[in-house]
Simulated scan of single mutants.
Amino acid sequence: MCRVREPSPCGGRPDRPCKDVPAVISLRQHIFSLVAVFVALAVGIAAGSTVVRGPLLDSTRARLESAEELIEVERAENDALAAELAQLDNWVVDGPDQLLRGRLSGLAVLTIVAGDVDPDVVAGVVRSIRATAGPFLGELRIDPAVFDPEQTDRVASVLGITLEPEADAAGDDVSADDVAALTMTAFGERIAERLPTVAEAIVTTVASEGSAGDGASTGGEVLRSVFGDLEDAGLVDLLEVNTRPVTAERMEVLVLTDRNLVHDPAAMLDSLITVSDPAGAAIDVLVAEVNRVAQDNETPVGSYVARIRDDGRLRDEVSTVDNAEIFLGWVAAVLGLEAAGAGSVGHYGFRDGADGAVPPRPAAPEG
């Protein structure tokens, strides 16, 4: 019989010893190796913790104590600021009556609100005007639809105008935004045309204290007779109207706008403020703006106050306030209206182009 020989692990020569085959590690050696590794690890941890424990832990403890002290300081400062803020909140309520009583004597004020201005700002401004001696006619709030390009056809229909897109000088079609701007311009002109009618109805020369108000119309009656059709069409709202007879020597218009509006009202405001003529007509215009941009507003509208201040002609004709979001801005608006009634156009607040926080105190007459 022939026996099949299995191949040798040593190159086919079973008679020679295998020199290249590695020796097999026994289980005992493997266990000893693992034990040695863990022992070395334990010794390293023990030695390391002994060496770094003192300086490192002391440094960490010192930093922690310092951080706790800073937290206590910040907490105390926050408590103090909260107390100051509470006092300012009280000023918002009580301040106008304390600071503005007796102001605006002989001056009737109409507030025009351009869309969704912060309601707290509107309420604060109205409260400040009511605290003065001048009659508050009411609030003419312009509906946001007037500034919405998607509502252009509706606004144009109410105004009775036809807007047909035309080509510009380059032959390109006029955009929807351009058409909306034309509509806003027409709306602003319509408001500006009617304001002198309001002024004529309330501006009278009072011969004596006893004749004041004889036969005079109430602020609400005057405003509804002039703007009632626009209110019926839903383009304006007449709010906070005066229900008493109103007489005044001059009419002041306070325009409120806000950089957080969805659509820019600049085109409408450009037409509206043309009614301001400090040297002639019995109407003065002051534009007060909420300039603080909300944190979640990534696309605020441009500052209309800055636009006025950068225009040489408008700067001399229209007063401005750039911080209508705070109490100081409300005070500045009232004092600015009073200064405008005396023939002084000014710009108040703390942003670029401001003359000061509030109008300067009028000089005392000589003698």
Rank of each mutant, 00 (worst) to 15 (best):
C10W: 01
A40D: 04
D229K: 06
I45P: 02
R315K: 10
T162C: 00
D229F: 11
R224M: 04
V146K: 07
L223M: 15
D94N: 12
D270N: 14
V113E: 14
A108W: 07
D214Q: 06
P196R: 11
E298L: 11
R250M: 12
G356L: 06
P359L: 03
E252I: 03
G106M: 00
R103K: 11
L107V: 15
V24D: 01
I191Q: 03
N297L: 00
G215D: 07
L223E: 03
A123W: 01
R53G: 15
D94R: 10
T111L: 08
E150K: 11
M251R: 15
E139G: 01
E189C: 01
V198S: 03
V52H: 05
T320G: 09
A67R: 12
I45D: 09
E366V: 09
G48A: 12
G219N: 10
A186W: 06
I142R: 10
V117W: 05
A36K: 09
I112Q: 11
Q98I: 06
G106Y: 06
T274I: 00
M251H: 12
D229I: 02
G115N: 09
E209P: 01
S271C: 03
G210S: 15
G302L: 10
L100M: 00
P360A: 05
I25R: 12
R101K: 14
G106D: 06
I142Y: 05
E150P: 01
T132K: 01
A333M: 04
R259Y: 07
T162L: 04
I45N: 12
L41I: 15
P7V: 00
